[in-house]
Design a protein around this nucleic acid. Structure first.
Lengths: 210, 210
DNA sequence: ACACGTCGGGACGCAACCGTACCGTCGTTG
DNA sequence: CAACGACGGTACGGTTGCGTCCCGACGTGT
């Protein structure tokens, strides 16, 4: 690509990091632009200003590329998240989730891949690791501390609590794409905190309706 | 397609309804199977047992087909939904939403199209009509009645309430694809009801953070 | 009885993409 | 300073899809 005058300077006998990161960046942008369904290696190569060959030297296939890059991008740092009160923890967590979902790329890529996960086991598995398991870990610790403090009843189910926390934020930011207000966040904290305590704890799943 | 012996009996000088509905059904199934991104008219025709020509006689293009069929499928009936109490209304509403999201086709198609809506204005517009506007209507009436009864403070924002209702259910059923329990539904009703009333009402959006 | 127009089937030209295989170039590593 | 191997570029054969067009067959409405 880039039909220049003669030839652009090439690399050497080692995989160049700048080219690797250019591919990663281009993949994320392309994924946001057209989604996984329409994703093409050629478009990624074009966008990265890189030859297709350079991509196939690093990854075996489209799926390989997506899984590795997305997993790497999602596996980031996260705060300590221990303020001493349930409401404080919730507020921090909400801010973190909201911050992540406000990234334009993330808010396009995540719903797309989550939809794709429903029909692609490899993607499903990867997302389970980098999204849901992390959420459950964080949520579990958060709920556990609140129970120890006596802020929540002992039977509280962390899994359900996470749904209650992530669900509205995800719906509003990623699906409805409605602007988020501080007031809304505050109310959400209040609703989740009181809601979790209200029912005498969220019982564990038993009689499945589905 | 269907390279038979000679020729199957054909129709007459009028669009046959059975073929039209076969196309509609095939489109929904194909949409669930591969998503909008990979959707192909040829696959729809194959699945419907119909020639491509038959599809193009009815719709101009892929997008036309999808928009019309999806809108028609989503524009269904909905219950009266007025039990006399906030918790009763919420429970009915949750059951209805949960029922809709348990349809295998719906739970595949809806997240896919919602993700696609982020980059396709036509799809976005259609979904806004058949999903979000309906939700806001229903939620608005529900909240309005609760406010009149004094169950909720007057300032309660119906839009935020809908997010609070739909979000967790959508996340659990369409994204996490976790089985839904009666107990979970009950707790959700409790959490939303108390949560909405807790903060002295959900204020309207003002200082957007995004 | 007859024209109308849909039916399946097939082919069309065009475009895009997959994954692989070659080049000749050229920087890095030892 | 020499060998290694990644680099861009290009081409390959095969597949898939788009949207259009033509055909002969045939059932329906007038």
């Amino acid at each position: 690509m880039t039909t220049g005058k003669r030839r652009a300077p090439a690399g050497a006998a080692v995989l160049r990091d700048d080219i690797t990161t250019a591919i990663r960046r281009a993949l994320m942008q392309e994924l946001a632009a057209v989604g996984y369904g329409r994703l093409s290696i050629e478009a990624v190569a074009r966008r990265a200003g890189v030859s297709k060959t350079a991509i196939y030297r690093r990854w075996n296939s489209k799926l390989d590329l997506v899984l590795e890059v997305v997993a790497a991008a999602a596996t980031g740092k996260l705060p300590a998240l221990d303020t001493g009160t349930l409401r404080g923890d919730l507020e921090l967590l909400f801010q973190a989730v909201a911050h992540a979902l406000r990234h334009p790329l993330a808010s396009q890529i995540i719903p797309d891949l989550l939809a794709e996960a429903a029909r692609n086991p490899s993607i499903d598995q990867t997302l389970q690791k980098v999204l849901r398991v992390r959420q459950q870990e964080i949520g579990g610790r958060l709920i556990g501390r609140a129970v120890q403090r006596g802020e929540l009843p002992p039977g509280t189910d962390p899994e359900a609590a996470v749904d209650l926390i992530v669900g509205p934020l995800y719906w509003r930011l990623a699906i409805a794409r409605t602007p988020l207000t501080d007031a809304y966040l505050g109310t959400l904290v209040e609703a989740v905190a009181t809601g979790l305590g209200a029912g005498g704890g969220v019982p564990r799943p038993r009689d499945a309706v589905a």
